[in-house]
Simulated assay, not measured.
Amino acid sequence: MSTNADIEILNELRELTKDKENWKANIDDVALKLNYDYSADVKAKVLWLLGEMGLKYPEEIECHVKDIASYLEDNDPKLRERSANAIGRIGRADNDLVIVYMDKLMKLKDDESFNVRHAFIWACENIATSNPDLFCDKLDIFYEMISDSEDKVRIEAPEMFRVIGKTRPNCVKHYLKKLEYFAENDENRIVRIHSAGAIRITKKALEQ
């Protein structure tokens, strides 16, 4: 349960989230909150905000990435989820800042929390936007996740093929027939739509 102090800080963070013009000046103060004994709710909000700040100001976030990444192994699934989100956004801006933490991020593919597994895919999509080559030899992971036990994860997994297929279609070419099966037969409509979208984007890129 959040204390009154936590509630006050959450309100401050929500206001700062909307005040993007002051993000750069407040990065250090926000990051400092990770080192205090605040509730998981506060730290989750801090991690999310730092990720968005890092997307906009990667140079200023660099000194805080280690602290952010430490939560990839936290006992609280919400904090693992938000840490993955943040690493993804920071990596989208500058993948060099997160390369050293990729092994820890990749372990989240097997996390017991489906929200963490979903965040893992989303983070990888973000990083792949700026460096798709990091994932060309890892696409089996995302193909297997289309058959995850949770629909939220299954819906997101084909999106990784869309992201990679847009700029590295030859990496996805091998998976087109497999994706066609999901696009035509999966019981979940969104999985079918996302699989079809990945196929369409990849084929378009192959033709160019």
Rank of each mutant, 00 (worst) to 15 (best):
E21L: 15
K56N: 13
A198T: 03
S2C: 04
F114I: 03
K24M: 05
D148V: 03
P58T: 12
W23Y: 13
D28I: 10
D137S: 08
N170Y: 11
A44L: 03
I190M: 12
D151S: 10
S113L: 03
R89M: 08
E187L: 14
Q208A: 12
K178A: 08
A25K: 06
D133S: 14
C63W: 02
E159F: 07
C171V: 06
C63K: 07
Q208D: 11
L49W: 00
P169F: 11
I199W: 02
E62A: 15
W23R: 10
R162K: 11
P132Y: 05
K173V: 14
L97G: 02
K178Y: 08
L47H: 01
K204T: 14
I121A: 01
M160S: 06
F161D: 01
I87E: 00
D28K: 12
E81N: 12
I190A: 06
C136W: 05
A69D: 04
K177V: 13
A44I: 01
I146Q: 00
M160R: 02
I90H: 02
V65T: 15
D76V: 11
P77L: 08
I87V: 15
D103W: 05
K78L: 12
E12T: 14
S195C: 07
M106Y: 07
V30L: 04
E60S: 15
D67N: 15
T202Q: 08
D151I: 15
F120A: 05
V98I: 08
E187Q: 14
N75M: 12
L134F: 08
L55Q: 15
N4D: 12
P158G: 09
C63T: 10
F142L: 06
I99M: 10
N11E: 15
F114C: 12
L206M: 13
K56V: 13
K104H: 14
R82E: 13
D110C: 11
V191M: 04
A31Y: 03
F182K: 03
V42L: 08
K107F: 04
I127D: 00
A198R: 00
R162F: 04
I7W: 07
L139A: 08
L108S: 03
I127E: 01
K43R: 09
R117P: 00
F135Y: 10
V191P: 01
P169D: 11
E150H: 11
K43F: 06
I27Q: 09
